[in-house]
Design a protein around this nucleic acid. Sequence first.
RNA 1: GCCGGUGUAGCUCAGACUGGUAGAGCGAAUCCUUCGUAAGGAUUAGGCCAAGGGUUCAAAUCCCUUCACCGGCUCCA
Length: 663
Amino acid sequence: MSRQESSVTVELPDGNTLDVPSGTTVEGVAYEIGPGLGDDTVAGKLDGELVSKADPVYDGATIEIVTPSADEYLQVMRHSAAHVLAQAVLRRYPDAKLATGPPTEEGFYYDFDGVDVDEDELDDLVAEMESILEDDLAIEREEVSIEEARERVAGDPYKEEILEDLASGERGADEDIETVSFYSQGEFSDLCAGPHVASTGQIGAVDLREIAATNWRGDEDEAPLTRVYGTAFESESDLEEYWERKEEAERRDHRRIGREMDLFSIPDHSPGCVHFHPDGMAIRRELEEYIREKNDELGYEEVWTPELNKTDLWKTSGHYEHFCEEDEMFHWEQASARTESDEGDEYGLKPMNCANHVHLYQRERRSYRELPKRYSEFGTCYRNERSGELSGMLRVRGFTQDDGHAFVRRDQIQSEVTRTLEVIDEVLDDFGLDVTFKLETQPDDSFGDDALWERAEEDLRSSLDALGEGYEVEAGEGAFYGPKIAADAEDAIGREWTVGTVQLDFVQPERFDLNYVGEDNDEHTPVMIHRALLGTFERFMGVMIEHFAGRFPLWLAPEQVRVLPLNEEVLGYAHRLKNDFHADGFRASVADGDDTLQRKIRRAHDENVPYMLIVGPDEEAAGTVSVRDRAEREGRDVDPDEFREHLRAEREEKRLDPDFLDE
RNA sequence: GCCGGUGUAGCUCAGACUGGUAGAGCGAAUCCUUCGUAAGGAUUAGGCCAAGGGUUCAAAUCCCUUCACCGGCUCCA
């Protein structure tokens, strides 16, 4: 292929290539393809990166044209909406200093200094923004020299900083930069790489969500800023739909449902520590039993080790150093007045279970024939998470992991990890959860040498490949002792939470000097695999509550069947039915208060009971029941034995929704 | 931890700006009602207004401190 100085070649999404004169912009390429496309061009993507339509293309780039029908359009529009917000804020607060205002997954935000708004004023700001949209101001791009840009941003400390970073090539700029771009609309102008829509009128609908505080560059030591969150959509109806989704997320909030269904509480006297109420514990017990079965299948031996250890243990393992750096370990010197010794011993609450399992491994001399040696434990750990991090059951200080450690030979790593991943996949599938695997690699504060890390990451990669489900890589997110695979489940609000994990650890076996006697009669160092299928019972239950919105599958439901007697005459029949369910291990009750039937039904629905059995004199006489499920379906003249048999199957197969009344 | 907000009955919230006897709905208890597929009626009980300090003749209300929670930032299972 001959390539001249004056032309560049770009690759189009369909795989074809196009030669255009050097310096041609994204928009120029679009016109080259077709005038209609050119007219529609809003922005472009060069090698996947969103750029302005005025950006020149470069040789070898893969180019995509962003038009109003593209997914990226929303992002562009929201970026423009952020500018409109800044413009509106400046109209009301002329002295405000602008920091940054990017689009986000859900909308956009803009950070300001010198703005003191409260939630009540958001409506006024929205009105101001809407008037800017109505004015349909043209959004214009301007390329200016660094020198001129300096003059323009003079007195705006944050913009000055951004500009200087750009000028010195620090913020991702790969070449010397001579010019920067400004975007302006009406009296407003902002240093910005773009891209943007052509005019403010093209932003369909905007709204502001909330005010939050942040710091310049997200750094606590930097200046505090006020962040205003908003969102924008192409139409009012899309915006309304968005708010409905937010409301749905709020209705599903596990803290709200947990209180309403009386599942758990986190009292002020133990922040970050979940108290499981009887109904919440019923769910946890099911989860525990389920995981025990899985652990049995995987060949784990269940153990229990204490929460309290001397910190010496954690100093050997490296946890002490790691956790104390962030002040995350609960530890103290225990005064020893009784022994009159000068110094007390230092104790701590375990932040992880692994060191205790190492002790169990280490107690005996191990042969290669014993490996993999696997210990599992529902171990309760404590970490002193910073107060601002705590969040219901999802982020806590005291938590119980469905933990397990496998001590393996190097040649066993891949099959062991793959098998564990398969089971995690299977487990999360039983809950109907979408899961994404992430490979998290060596962090900055890692222990152990790089060659070990490389090898460990390679092992995990090949296990993930063997699983064949695809995965994402998160660089630098691994544990300090080894890389890990995180199984992330998505909650109702679209947040992803790490539930299961598999972590490789070459470091602790060395620090504890673990070994086994190999076939060759020499000592070898085993590798530790840390893993959890659900992660922690606390977090997993929180995710479950939101995922099911409190409408748990039969096997997890705190109350599975409620018998609703029509009147006092049939109380005896109702209780006999309930006792039959109890005999089958079901959680069942009789609504024997003096409420009306309608009221009893209403309550059972409010409490998300999967099945209601309504019985009156007719049913008693016929020896039948009337079944109603929480999806408001009804079935009359049902044989109770047949129903119970169905229930056993529904429970056993962990079906997600009551299906006795399915057609 | 940082920035902002909130804390009143078991729950959801009025009352606070402008200091002057603490309110409602739901829930609970009791009684009436004995009911056929999402709220029958009446009565009663429930609060050291998060905790501590201050201002004042007087504080749920104004000020300060602490604690907890919520939303972000940052950090993690």
